[in-house]
Design a protein around this nucleic acid. Sequence first.
DNA 1: AAAACACTTGACGAAATCATCAAGTGTTCT
DNA 2: AGAACACTTGATGATTTCGTCAAGTGTTTT
Lengths: 120, 120
Amino acid sequence: MNQETVGECLGEDHGHGAASLPLPSSEVCARTAAIFRALGDERRLSLLALLAHREMCVSELTERLKDNLPAISQRLKLLRAERIVVTRRQGKHVFYSLADNHVAQLIANGLAHGCESDGQ
Amino acid sequence: MNQETVGECLGEDHGHGAASLPLPSSEVCARTAAIFRALGDERRLSLLALLAHREMCVSELTERLKDNLPAISQRLKLLRAERIVVTRRQGKHVFYSLADNHVAQLIANGLAHGCESDGQ
DNA sequence: AAAACACTTGACGAAATCATCAAGTGTTCT
DNA sequence: AGAACACTTGATGATTTCGTCAAGTGTTTT
């Protein structure tokens, strides 16, 4: 992403009167907050950390995370509703993967920060 | 024909010899999720979008967001607890700013994604 | 010292979120 | 067609989170 895009999202004032600091539209804030909220759960994040490696079906995720399948499926449902993951059916299996590399980037950055600020 | 699919998905021994993919430690996941959770609220995010411009005291934030002061203060308290913002007292005023560039980057990236995926 | 200003905090009810489980759907195998 | 597999969904109760307001703290002004 380039700096201009970020600036527009922050609502930077490209004009010349400096008094008001514009906010992103409330739609953008709401959408962004919804994404962050979806990422803001330890178990969903573990799920996403696995999917950051490669696509996986629900059974494999269930087994790797040692949890029960409906629980995993519910979390995936929420992530799908927020368009953070996408699905692909192949035979009996449903494969999940991260929706795009922007999402992947967001998760990677978050985890990197989580690493650094851990234990402080 | 279909054995192949199952084999690729779960491995032939169905989890007793599957290669382990690295997961972040649960501490890192928990810390990261806590950060995302803190960012995952529209009003807190508006607050942070303003602080992305420059540091501000509570009164100014309150005025710009047209909300009541205790409400703003409570949100800032949560953000401070997660070390997403830091404070600096100057006379009667308490100035808030983003804790570091990494946090700023995270917010900017999130908003950029929120921009792109908005309205879809 | 007292008043005024700029916040911060504690507490409590309201609202949103989450895990769990039974029941349902879609696909493949026999 | 029926059974088995791989999920998905709806409902419900428990937990967590949030907004609100009264009361408290720290700083400056008078």
